[in-house]
């Protein structure tokens, strides 16, 4: 168990760095679930648990600076729990989310603590010390790696065998209830996406997508390709011109650096 916990810790550290740096998205549950499954010797359960957790986090992306529950820890702990405690991946969602929320508040704290480092960078800039700026920029990912390593190593090393006992002691209605909730949970993610993107004039496109999948049982990829075709038609017909209340904020062109552009990350 020690070796597996160490490997999962290292993997969590790498995925944790990728969440903010590199952004190759190997930190998404669909990939981490598979890797954790390989480490624990059951890649098939890992695949399925990863897929379930991926959908829960579908809409939980960093929008306008708001940090969602931590997707790295959610995916890794959720999958490890599903495999080690021999539970349905849907139940793992109920375990993963509270954990992920706690971790994210730690990350928020880290971003606050890192603010004074910028003043150090200012000093390096004044002295022309470019190597110093480089070093301070490398320090961030190192801190993240250590943080994620500890956070995922501890529960796997100490709690794996206990997890199954705890789950077995739980009443049946609670377990099946968590499973039902895990099945419904993607609705929250989709609603978050809609909150950002929804506009009355886009409702027909949403309806078309829903109808194709619900009544005609069309696969997602087919619906996506159709969506691209419709969007391309719309783009070249130029109907975007009459569109004023776009969600995309166009920044006022001025030199005021104190404005808060809280997009990105």
């Amino acid at each position: 168990m020690l070796i597996q916990a160490l490997l999962i810790g290292i993997w969590a550290g790498i995925a944790g760095i990728d969440l903010f740096n590199g952004l190759t998205h190997i930190h998404r549950p669909i990939f981490t679930g598979f890797v954790v499954g390989l480490i624990l010797g059951d890649w098939q359960t890992g695949l399925i648990a990863g897929a379930t957790l991926e959908l829960v986090w579908a809409g939980m992306v960093p929008l306008a600076g708001a940090q969602p529950p931590n997707v790295v820890i959610g995916g890794i702990i959720g999958t490890a729990f599903a495999i080690l405690a021999h539970q349905d991946p849907k139940i793992a969602v109920g375990v993963a989310v509270p954990f992920a929320v706690a971790v994210q508040s730690c990350i928020t704290l880290l971003f606050t603590i890192y603010s004074p480092v910028m003043h150090k960078m200012d000093n390096y800039a004044v002295n022309g010390n470019t190597k110093g700026i480089d070093r301070l920029n490398y320090l961030g990912p190192i801190i993240l790696f250590i943080f994620y390593f500890i956070i995922s190593f501890l529960p796997i090393y100490f709690g794996a065998d206990k997890a199954e006992v705890i789950v077995n002691a739980l009443p049946k209605w609670l377990i099946s209830g968590l499973s039902v909730a895990g099945g419904i949970m993607p609705a929250v993610g989709f609603a978050m996406l809609m909150k950002i993107m929804w506009k009355g004039s886009y409702a027909p496109f949403f309806a078309v997508g829903f109808i194709l999948a619900a009544y005609l049982k069309m696969p997602i990829l087919a619906v996506a390709i159709l969506g691209v075709a419709v969007a391309a038609y719309d783009f070249f017909m130029g109907s975007g011109k009459s569109d004023d209340g776009d969600k995309v904020k166009v920044a006022p062109v001025n030199d005021d650096l104190e404005e808060d552009y809280s997009n990105g990350i």
Binding site: P186, A207, G209, A214, A231, F235
Partner: peptide, 18 residues
């Protein structure tokens, strides 16, 4: 951004149903 929203919402509609 309009074209992206059209594709996005069509797919979200299908995801909700699936």
């Amino acid at each position: 951004s309009r074209a992206a929203s059209i594709v996005g919402l069509t797919v979200i509609g299908a995801l909700v149903a699936t």
